[in-house]
Design a protein around this nucleic acid. Structure first.
Lengths: 168, 168
DNA sequence: GACAGATAACTGCTCAGGCAGATATTGCTG
DNA sequence: CAGCAATATCTGCCTGAGCAGTTATCTGTC
């Protein structure tokens, strides 16, 4: 569980192979998972992004549009439109904050909660099937490694953006 | 290295948390990696997708448009246009096959090879920095786990598509 | 308390990428 | 060898998402 010490570089120009590149693997996984998940929601006409937003609000990961956009590394404009749709269909509700009148708080409605609950088993089954040949320890490890990598790349991204802003 | 035996389900409806979901982690990583990589190529006006295509052709992962689309789990129409751009800029070349006149073979040009070579160090550095706190064993493990998961989900996707086609 | 700078949400513009259909070619089957 | 299904590529269309700019609000400074 403890993080390792600094090492010499993992990749090198000579030995690099696309197939063993994490970026390649993640891109392909994403390209498969998104439509795969959307197929699960086909009868509800639900997008994977919409699902993620609904779950993020339900689980209290994000309370406002901005937080949502930051937590999902998503454009804030696109997030606004995503929330528009979910609100129009009655799964979320917007409420202007009283403390800071710029922000709009998001809350899942009873309908939204019911929908999330009814779709959840499909998602669970999808992932359990995908992980069928993984031991619990391996699944845990995969999640832990991805989480660490995410934190690392997130920090790097913030750093880069800060530099870009300072350059202006 | 050996794969584990069948287990009871890893996820359950009660304990599911978005933050611990592999789909969520992969989506976020993808959302960070794609623009991050594109920033590396900014001066070459290169897309991450274009980079992946160029590398796939260079490394012989794919020889034709169709293979490319399959290997990257990408739309074939979009792939055509990607190749259009890379060809127009002189990085790839199309050549109609003589054995099967439907297929168009792809080959990287000297210019394309030179570009790939010149950009490679940036990509290597990006990933080595991202993996700085991972031991070589951990990095290997992450790649191995992602590869297994990819194979699994890929098989499932093919199965699903076959069923969908049979239903017609 | 006026002004500057930051932040939240939203809107118009543009474009990559997915979907469905068109065309050319091949292979299979009777 | 006629006909039909499958395959490879390409094209038109449309949606989703990123970018830049707008408005409203807040915070900090002098």
């Amino acid at each position: 569980m403890d993080s390792a010490m600094a090492n010499r570089p993992f990749y090198s120009v000579e030995k690099f192979q696309a197939r063993r590149s994490i970026g390649y693997l993640i891109k392909r996984l994403n390209n498969l998972i998104v439509p795969g998940a959307e197929a699960l929601f086909a009868d509800a006409e639900f997008t994977f992004s919409q699902w993620v937003v609904l779950m993020a609000v339900r689980d209290g990961i994000a309370d406002t549009c901005g937080e949502l956009a930051r937590h999902l590394d998503h454009d804030s404009g696109a997030t606004t439109r995503l929330v528009d749709q979910l609100e129009k269909r009655g799964y979320l509700r917007r409420r202007r904050s009283t403390e800071d009148r710029r922000v709009v708080h998001l809350r899942i409605t009873a309908t939204g909660r019911a929908l999330a609950k009814s779709l959840m088993p499909r998602v669970i089954d999808f992932w359990n099937e995908a992980l069928e040949e993984f031991s619990p320890a391996e699944a845990q490890q995969l999640i832990a490694l991805l989480t660490r990598l995410l934190a690392r790349i997130e920090a790097r991204t913030l750093e880069t953006r800060k530099q870009a802003r300072a350059a202006k």
